[in-house]
Amino acid sequence: MERMEFAGAGVTIVADAAGAADAPLVLFLHGGGQTRQSWGKALEVAAERGYRAVSLDLRGHGESGWSDDGAYSMPRFADDVRNVIAALGRPPVIVGASLGGLIGILIASVPSPEVRGLVLVDVAVRLETEGTREIGAFMQSAPDGFASLDDAADAVSAYLPHRTRPKDTSGLMRNLRLRENGRLHWHWDPAFTRYNPETAKLTANIFAQAAASLTVPVLLIRGGRSRVLSAEGVAEFRELVPHAEYVDVAGADHMVAGDANDSFNDAVLGFLAQHAHAAQ
């Protein structure tokens, strides 16, 4: 795995990359509160199948820079990713989960598209309020951090009860930072978790318009147990984007790649085989 750095729109964007540098490009964008390491083995599998796979830490997440003014707007995220695409030198297929998928919709909807295709992972225009509130509540639940890795693991287990709590919790350090107070804190900028209902309502309208203008190939993947993207939300999206393909991953929750990595990889690789091999 190769570590890379890019100049975003005023912040440094950190990424991992795998696969031949001149292979068809796949760009992975994680969800809010996640990092570039949230994709399980997807990068390795994509590289093995002949793709150049790149996974970013979005601004305010992981090792990437934080916004100096504490502002995290969708246009800023999109501008960061556009800078990365320009630096990579050719249009990718974007695979975006949750927040990353919304960023992908904005980028892919602008003529002429800067991407070859778009995979949306458990995200569409309509999202369920209860599910999104659960995510927000988790992200705001430990403002003072944790005394130990076990405490952090307990918090994750309470939030994701369907997953088996790992006996070895050391892997969580990839998602935590030791701050000056001597406690472990999640890897995101706390300013990212601020929620403005009016801004959210306006943003939903913008995404509906953007989705309706998509012309690139699109695959929508839903976790069958998701409380964020409902069957109704899927139906509404498919009306807006009639050409979109659709896969339901039974047994997976919102974080589909982590819950059902093999099924997720099969769906993504099938889509890439159709749409990622156009002339570079």
Score class of each variant (00 low, 15 high):
Leu25Arg: 03
Ala87Asp: 09
Arg133Tyr: 01
Pro166Trp: 04
Pro190His: 02
Val84Cys: 12
Tyr246Trp: 11
Arg52Thr: 01
Arg49Pro: 00
Glu5Arg: 11
Val249Cys: 07
Pro217Val: 13
Gln37Pro: 00
Ala152Glu: 07
Ala7Ile: 10
Asp68Ile: 01
Glu180Arg: 14
Arg3Trp: 05
Ser157Trp: 04
Thr132Val: 14
Met255Gln: 10
Pro143Asn: 06
Val228Ser: 01
Val84Thr: 09
Pro217Arg: 15
Ile135Phe: 02
Leu160Gly: 00
Ser157Phe: 09
Ser170Thr: 13
Gly33His: 05
Phe192Lys: 13
Gln140Trp: 01
Glu232Ala: 15
Phe192Gly: 04
Ile221Pro: 12
Thr164Lys: 15
Lys167Met: 08
Leu184Gln: 09
Pro190Thr: 08
Gly10Pro: 13
Leu43Ser: 03
Asp79Gln: 14
Tyr159Asp: 07
Gly223Pro: 13
Thr193Ser: 12
Thr132Glu: 01
Arg179Asn: 11
Asn196Ser: 02
Gln280Lys: 10
Ala235Asp: 14
Val14Glu: 03
Val95Tyr: 01
Val241Ser: 10
Phe6Thr: 03
Arg116Met: 11
Leu88His: 11
Arg174Thr: 06
Asp154Val: 06
Ala97Val: 04
Lys167Pro: 06
Leu220Tyr: 14
Ser148Ala: 08
Val93Thr: 07
Phe6Gln: 03
Pro92Lys: 02
Glu2Cys: 05
Asn261Asp: 12
His30Pro: 02
Phe138Arg: 07
Leu58His: 04
Arg183Glu: 00
Val121Met: 07
Ala158Thr: 12
Val54Gly: 02
Gly70Met: 12
Asn261Val: 02
Gly270Leu: 03
Gly251Ala: 08
Leu58Met: 11
Arg126Leu: 06
Ala53Pro: 01
Tyr246Phe: 15
Val216Ile: 03
Ala108Met: 10
Val268Lys: 03
Gly270Met: 00
Ala278Val: 08
Ala124Phe: 08
Gly8Glu: 00
Ala231Phe: 11
Thr129Arg: 13
Leu118Phe: 04
Met139Cys: 02
Phe146Ile: 06
Asn83Met: 06
His243Pro: 04
His187Thr: 13
Leu178Arg: 13
Val54Lys: 05
Ala47Met: 01
Leu178Ala: 05
Val115Ser: 05
Asp16Ala: 09
Leu58Gln: 08
Met139Asp: 05
Pro166Tyr: 10
Ala235Cys: 06
Val234Ser: 03
Gln140Arg: 15
Ala86Arg: 14
Ala191Asp: 12
Ile85Asp: 07
Arg238Ile: 04
Asp189Asn: 00
Ala235His: 10
Thr129Trp: 04
His162Lys: 12
Glu5Val: 13
Met255Asp: 09
Gly182Asp: 00
Pro91Asp: 02
Val228Thr: 14
Trp39His: 03
Ala47Lys: 00
Glu114Thr: 05
Arg49Tyr: 05
Asp150Arg: 13
Leu56Gln: 02
Val93Ile: 15
Ala252Gly: 04
Ser38Leu: 01
Glu130Asn: 07
Ser67His: 06
Lys201Asp: 15
Ile105Pro: 11
Arg76Cys: 10
Val95Asp: 00
Val93Gln: 07
Ser67Gln: 09
Val95Ile: 13
Val249Phe: 06
Val119Glu: 08
Ala200Thr: 13
Arg222Asp: 12
Gly171Tyr: 11
Met4Trp: 11
Arg126His: 13
